[in-house]
Design a protein around this nucleic acid. Structure first.
Lengths: 203, 203
DNA sequence: ACTTTTACTGAATTAGTATTCATAATATGA
DNA sequence: TCATATTATGAATACTAATTCAGTAAAAGT
């Protein structure tokens, strides 16, 4: 990172500026209502410059999605693959969505508005799809392990994972309309409580 | 209905044919990847004809959404406003999604792909938004009444409704990829069981 | 039969915007 | 300082697709 020339660092910064402006505009208006002219003007570059960084508008969009998906992955995956007990992992997973909601509202808006849902694998961006699939399969394994260890009840793990992901997504979408820290923390607590009341074995 | 001239009935049929083809194409490719030419060709009319029925492509799309939303409303709302006990209403509501999945896969695909989610009020079509809001508020009331009657536990009703709607939506989306009657019935049963294990007071 | 009305048609118009590319500005290193 | 390389520019181009409209066809009325 530090052994790059000023020029190279500038280039990276410029690319980031363009992506950042693109995210703002796409999240606000959607892919098709934002022109390359809009992005260029917003970022303070000429249109031609965008094409020095991205092959096409489509490519720019995909790079943006990959970027954002990567950030989300960095938050969620370490939790799921760590070696905490299943119950703790799941609680942490749910509550880490507070950080996601804070940092990635724009991306989440964009993602859901362009792709429909975070729970289904069907987007344009390969990386996003991979990440969703990874989270899905990690969650599934956690639930199944929990069941086999008798920490969790005998539930249909597929449905639980589907429901949890869908609920968190809908909640974050809802929160992203008007962000309110207290409400988010509280809502996630309710979601946690709610899922565990269903999952936990009465001991 | 029956006291219309042949011509009038033809016109209505033609409109339906156009909407039906539009639904097929939009569901498959999304709004922006389908041209009026495509729809016209698919329905066997000239492009100009579409403009005798619809003011614009945007208007055609909205009419289509309203149409479909109305159908869904006709399935779900009678259940929620009937005078069954809360528990029965909720069980019926969940399981009636089987019929929805069967009849409206294309619409649901389209709707979710264009609007992001069924749980959030934010679409282009006023009617769809009204319907979602109506379902949401009916569900909310059912849960709250159930709680006050001590049939349901003290839960956060907002979160339960959010989660239920999100779960059902995600499940139907998932099912719409490859429809399988048994899987749908089974999944809905799991969802029912899952939500009631959380909701019902141990009596 | 013929006049009028209604419905359909699709080539032509129009509008918007993604992309290109010749040129200008700037940075680098000799 | 100057030659070279890199990066930025935005008017011009090319393309896509929504919309129009003058003309055709069919049906209804007389």
């Amino acid at each position: 990172m530090e052994n790059l020339s000023r020029k190279e660092r500038d280039k990276i910064r410029h690319k980031k500026e363009i992506l950042s402006e693109a995210l703002n505009l796409f999240a606000e208006k959607g892919f098709h209502s934002v022109s390359m002219q809009d992005i260029a003007a917003g970022a303070g570059f000429g249109v031609g410059t965008l094409y020095n960084f991205f092959q096409s508008k489509e490519q720019l969009f995909e790079d943006l999605m990959n970027d954002c998906a990567e950030k989300i992955y960095q938050v969620l995956c370490p939790i799921l693959v760590g070696d905490l007990p299943e119950e703790a992992k799941l609680r942490l997973f749910i509550n880490s969505h507070k950080k996601l909601a804070e940092d990635n509202i724009k991306f989440i808006k964009l993602y859901v508005s362009e792709y429909g849902t975070l729970t289904i694998v069907n987007g344009r961006s390969q990386k996003s799809n991979d990440i969703k699939a990874a989270i899905h399969s990690n969650l599934l394994e956690i639930i199944q392990t929990g069941i086999s260890k008798n920490v969790f009840r005998q539930v249909d793990s597929e449905i639980v994972v589907l429901s949890l992901m869908a609920t968190l997504q809908a909640f974050i979408m809802e929160s992203s309309k008007v962000y309110n820290e207290l409400k988010v923390r509280n809502g996630l607590m309710q979601i946690e409580q709610f899922f565990f009341s269903m999952l936990l074995n009465v001991s």
